[in-house]
């Protein structure tokens, strides 16, 4: 009860902050409000984000803007096939002055890491990053080092030109809470772009709307969004459908179902609701379940669309 009061008492402030964040990013990434909200929800749900899109669609811009607005330390790594785990995690170098090894932190020691074209690097390097994502810590030379809090990875990969890439296996894909694609901008957005709105200039002008303390508070609020029995029934039906449908070779795992619930909670929080609605689940479902469902032939996203149409919200 106390937590609910807190949520409602802070409701106004929370909503104000969130809408400011969304608006700020919207200035940089024109006409992509839904994707921005998804990315934000992913972050609030303490998950990592995989953006699958063609080059030049604004992946980097989104990551950068998020970091800027949320006041996070931001690093970017361009993955290549000759990268080694140490290039990400860091390396201990012997210093003659002090006569001992000193650890040089890699780019992973940041609050928001943009792992560009993650599928270009070797599985070894990929798994080093993915392990860090899962554990929120890295172990080097037998020493465990905690990563900064919050720790948020946005990885991108190019769906085309897959030659010479190492496709992320399903188990690794599962580490990402969401997979989204930005898509082409709308006509209006593109026109505005042509008319000289310079996203980069906007980016530089963005001020942090929240500090990491505030972000942590927001993240804790996500868990307090209420899920009623009716909603959990719907969630169960969705999960069951994914497991029983003949189209699906592999259905949603319990971890996937939990991820769906958590992401939906974050989505509800963004929309200033203290309880979950079916549309919250539906909003995050393609992003959360699309890369987790294995299908024969058709893409996971299409499957999720069909699933949303077939599964009755109010019981059969």
């Amino acid at each position: 009860m106390a937590s609910e009061e807190k949520l409602s008492s802070n409701g106004f402030a929370v909503q104000k902050i969130i809408s400011a964040i969304v608006a700020d990013i919207g200035k940089v990434l024109l006409g992509k409000e839904h994707q921005v909200k998804l990315a934000l929800a992913c972050l609030l749900a303490r998950g990592h984000l995989l953006i699958e899109d063609l080059p030049g669609m604004g992946k980097t811009t989104l990551a950068h803007a998020l970091a800027q607005v949320l006041g996070l330390s931001y690093k970017r790594v361009q993955f290549t096939s000759d990268m080694l785990p140490a290039d990400i995690i860091g390396v201990s170098i012997f210093e003659r002055d002090s006569g001992q090894f000193r650890f040089h932190e890699g780019p992973v020691f940041s609050q928001l890491l943009l792992a560009d074209e993650i599928n270009r690097s070797s599985p070894k390097t990929q798994s080093a990053l993915l392990e860090a994502m899962e554990e929120h810590q890295v172990s080097i030379d037998g020493e465990t080092r905690a990563l900064p809090e919050p720790f948020f990875v946005i990885a991108t990969q190019n769906p085309l030109q897959q030659s010479g890439t190492f496709v992320l296996p399903e188990s690794q894909l599962d580490r990402f809470l969401m997979r989204i694609s930005l898509g082409y901008p709308t006509r209006e957005a593109e026109r505005a772009l042509f008319q000289g709105v310079d996203p980069r200039a906007q980016l530089a002008r963005l001020a942090p709307r929240i500090n990491s303390e505030g972000l942590r508070k927001l993240q804790s609020l996500v868990g307090q969004v209420k899920a009623s029995d009716s909603l959990l029934d719907y969630l169960e039906r969705l999960v069951l459908h994914s497991r029983q449908s003949p189209e699906c070779t592999v259905g949603l795992s319990p971890r996937g179902a939990l991820a769906l619930l958590h992401a939906a909670r974050a989505w509800a929080l963004i929309h200033n609701r203290s309880h979950l609605l079916p549309e919250d689940l539906q909003a995050v479902l393609p992003a959360v379940a699309g890369h987790r469902l294995q299908t024969d032939g058709t893409g996971g996203t299409q499957l999720v669309e069909r699933m949303m149409h077939q599964v009755d919200i109010i019981a059969a």
Partner: peptide, 22 residues
């Protein structure tokens, strides 16, 4: 709510199974 949906269906606008109330 299902009763509401039924009456709406009678008026010619049925809810699809996967359509959220909103």
């Amino acid at each position: 709510y299902l009763r509401f949906c039924q009456r709406m269906a009678g008026a010619g606008l049925a809810r699809n199974p996967g359509e959220a109330p909103g």
